[in-house]
Design a protein around this nucleic acid. Structure first.
Length: 498
RNA sequence: GGGUCGUUAGCUCAGUCGGUAGAGCAGUAGCCUUUUAAGCUAUUGGCCGCAGGUUCGAUUCCUGCACGACCCA
């Protein structure tokens, strides 16, 4: 707190002055009885005379967002979590001490006000203050009233300031909460049980990603922050919890960009005695439910300068057909590894010679097909080689009963009929182990306990993961994941003051 | 990891073809009892991101670094 600028020093001086006069600058004894929003709802329509006659007196508390003073009177805008309400302070209606206090209030201070409602010349509902109490002295100046805080770096690093001055942030986060509530309600209505499985895993599995590593001192073992809850949720289905879901964080030790944050929120769910085809309809229904709850017109969802139509049914696109019809690949490239590899290199993809044809095709799909999938599209028919936990199709053993959902080129969901054959699963684990030995640190580890669980018997099951952050991006029209996460990960700056 | 752009007052931004920097808001002093980005008058405030180089002289040109935004991988 040493090398402060003058604005802060000036406010600290005020704070000291308050203390010396017996005014507590961090006072918690004031109890508001009304919220700004409720007052507007209750009395915005009441006309001036009637309002005066009713003599409605209230106590409100909040942060001073605007301060307009002229000599012996003035106005303040007080902001609480529900909204803003105007306060009128005039010399004749206040005690001498309170008026002096009012004159010394800074924008950003948190105060309590007691007074009665009236309407100004311009018909704005206002509280005429009888009593003003300083609740918290703010010693840092707020950003400019008109432009607010624009600097994205500061907005993410100091989200508390962002929230104070940019209302849009709170609105987005409220929508985020509403979306998650809607999902939860929908799942519960469908008789799913919400569970919490470990965030710290002894083995890496359930997805293809690099994990974060941490250490447990007492046991002296390394643990991994989970990259997916999948294997634990399926253990629960083995145990008879035939419909389970979890909404929680996953952690992937990867780069950050518009669509990736190292920790992100997923809803993963499993339902026994259903196939992946059930999931397609269920996902459509879930989205429909969320849109309805949020009051969004599902036919016209504005996102990233596009208008997306979520009318059901959504498009189904076969992986290989998509490579041809959307990606423009010919039959030969799809079957010839050499050709596919060369094309991938040409497109600047980081492919390796020893990659499987399927993995290279997945890269091509990523580059050529995904960006073109704007309206919601279920891609189906993924090859086995890139789907280590999905059940093989009974018609074609090289492909799986799996789908991914794309919207505006973004992967939104991934689901499949679960592989419940312990022998097949064991083989695929062994294959992953080989990949790992070859240096692929995204391959999963051999989970012997999971195999044992499958040996007890996992009923036929369908499971899916939905990226919540991306869903919120879509429904609040933000093209950056950082705008839907309250505290996105940021690099430390040098010389942070202590 | 690579490329482009950015970093100037508390905030939002100008600007300097290389000669010690401006505005608006905020702040301070004064006037003002119904304002709405209140108004009027006056005024304080800057290691021009950090380090190095070129130069008589660098906030400006060059290099490196840090952080960020965007694009690509």
């Amino acid at each position: 707190m040493e090398d402060r600028n003058k604005l802060i020093q000036r406010r600290i001086e005020k704070l000291k002055e308050f203390k010396s006069k017996g005014i507590e600058p961090y006072n918690n004894a004031f109890l508001p009885d009304s919220l700004a929003e409720d007052l507007h709802k209750g009395y915005d329509e009441t006309d001036s005379e009637e309002l005066i006659n009713k003599d409605i007196c209230v106590a409100v508390a909040g942060r001073v967002m605007a301060y307009r003073s002229f000599g012996k009177a003035g106005f303040m805008k007080l902001k609480d979590f529900s909204g803003q309400i105007q306060v009128y302070a005039e010399k004749n209606s206040l005690s001498e001490e309170d008026f002096k206090l009012y004159k010394k209030i800074d924008i950003g201070d948190i105060i309590g006000v007691e007074g009665c409602l009236f309407k100004t010349k311009t018909k704005e509902l206002t509280i005429k203050a009888k009593k003003i109490v300083l609740l918290t002295k703010s010693i840092r100046p707020l950003p400019e009233k008109w432009h607010g805080l624009q600097d994205k770096e500061l907005r993410y690093r100091q989200r508390y300031v962002d929230l104070i001055v940019n209302n849009e942030v709170k609105e987005t986060m409220i929508k985020r909460a509403q979306i998650i509530n809607a999902i939860r309600d929908f799942m519960v209505q469908n008789r799913f049980i919400e569970v919490e499985t470990p965030m710290m895993h002894k083995l890496v599995g359930g997805a293809t990603a690099k994990p974060f590593i941490t250490h447990h001192n007492a046991l002296d073992i390394d643990l991994y922050l989970r990259i997916a809850p999948e294997l634990y949720l399926k253990r629960l289905v083995v145990g008879g919890m035939e419909r389970v879901f979890e909404i929680n964080r996953n952690f992937r030790n990867e780069g950050m960009d518009l669509k990736h944050n190292p920790e992100f929120t997923m809803m993963e769910f499993y339902i026994a005695y259903r196939r992946y085809t059930f999931l397609l309809d269920f996902t459509e229904e879930l989205f429909e439910y969320i849109f309805k709850r949020l009051g969004i017109d599902e036919k016209k969802v504005e996102f990233n300068n596009q208008t997306i139509d979520f009318s059901r049914p959504w498009k189904r696109l076969d992986f290989f057909d998509g490579l041809k019809s959307v990606g423009g690949l010919d039959e030969e490239t799809i079957k010839n590894k050499e050709k596919a590899y060369n094309l991938a290199v040409e497109l600047g993809k980081s492919v390796k010679k020893d990659m499987s044809l399927e993995k290279i095709l997945a890269e091509l799909f990523d580059a050529l097909v995904e960006p073109k999938l704007i309206n919601p599209t279920f891609v189906v028919g993924y090859p086995v080689a890139i789907s280590p936990l999905a059940r093989r199709s009974s018609e074609n053993p090289d492909i799986t009963e799996r789908f991914e959902l794309f919207v505006s080129g973004m992967e939104m969901a991934n689901g499949f009929s679960e592989l419940n054959d312990p022998f097949d699963q064991k083989e695929r684990f062994l294959k992953q182990l080989e990949e790992r030995k070859k240096g692929d640190d995204e391959a999963s580890m051999y989970d012997a306990d999971y195999i044992r669980a499958l040996e007890y018997g996992l009923p036929p099951t369908a499971g899916e993961g939905i990226g919540i952050d991306r869903l919120v991006m879509l429904m609040t029209n933000h093209d950056s994941i950082r705008d839907v996460i309250l505290f996105p990960l940021m690099k430390d700056k040098e010389n942070e003051e202590i």
